[in-house]
Write a protein that binds this DNA or RNA. Structure first.
Lengths: 143, 143
DNA sequence: CTGATAACTGAAAATGAATATCAAAAGCAT
DNA sequence: ATGCTTTTGATATTCATTTTCAGTTATCAG
């Protein structure tokens, strides 16, 4: 699955005439080694701690490339930082965001997806992507 | 309905011990006169053009108050500006955002809302609010 | 392999939205 | 009106993100 993603990015790079660089390889490796919802800063720090000198700007630029390549997705929560999550082919998950402890629970619901398709069809709309976030308190925080 | 909202804000202000000021009245009037999804900047310019000297900071502060008071809701799209939409009591609408022309179509779907409640219940999660945005191309832009 | 060329990088500067500061102005209770 | 407190707004500040640009590096033709 990791190899699959690397291939996906390679294909994208080739098709766009992008070059293969040390920095992009490293950032991809580290991104793939993270779990959901990494902020750019988190990723940057992770890279920094590995003593590989990669600049802020490059991390930003590269994550945008990953998004274009279809293996990452930008998500905006309410903390002023853009986060990136992994895109898994057919799958799409949405989020329960706890405003108490900032934890994020993921879920997936095929019925909702289907309803979305219907709504889009009704408006002649062509879906590219979507996101849904439910805010509230998780089981721990509501007590 | 406009009066209703003004009352809602007045009640909120009273309960919080906030003062009634010229600026807040004006901003509320202008906010209520707008349609969906005003950015702070748009609102600020609208006020400025009315030759009423109200500062940037006040507009930001006041919109946060409206949000607290329950008559506005923050929405984050992908243009880096926070926008505010009108909250209509029971109603909740979601958005089809066209990445071609930036137009926004609203929709509402009771079934989706119900599914959300079920999902939340399954995770012991207490819903405060939610948002859903579907990105893609509108009927005009896909041709 | 080598040199030309165009893409890539990164440090630093720039941008832009949002927030904080703080003195002056204004609301509100007495 | 008086005095106290909130509010305002110009300005400065913060913080994420983007741009700039000179130096570096990948790629490819020869």
């Amino acid at each position: 699955m990791i190899l699959e993603k690397k291939k996906m990015f390679n294909d994208f790079a080739t098709s766009k005439g992008l070059r293969s660089t040390r920095q992009r390889d490293i950032i991809l490796d580290i991104f793939l080694s993270t779990h959901q919802h990494v902020s750019v800063e988190e990723l940057y720090l992770k890279i920094k701690s590995s003593n590989l000198g990669i600049g802020h700007a490059t991390v930003y630029r590269t994550l945008k490339l990953f998004t274009e390549a279809g293996l990452a997705r930008e998500i905006l929560l309410h903390d002023g930082q853009t986060r990136y999550e992994h895109v898994v082919k057919g799958e799409h998950h949405d989020h329960l965001v706890c405003t108490g402890c900032n934890s994020i629970i993921e879920f997936e619901d095929a019925t909702i997806e289907k309803l979305q398709d219907e709504i889009a069809a009704r408006h002649g709309f062509l879906i590219k992507s979507h996101k849904m976030e439910i805010y509230g308190l998780c089981a721990n925080c509501r007590s």
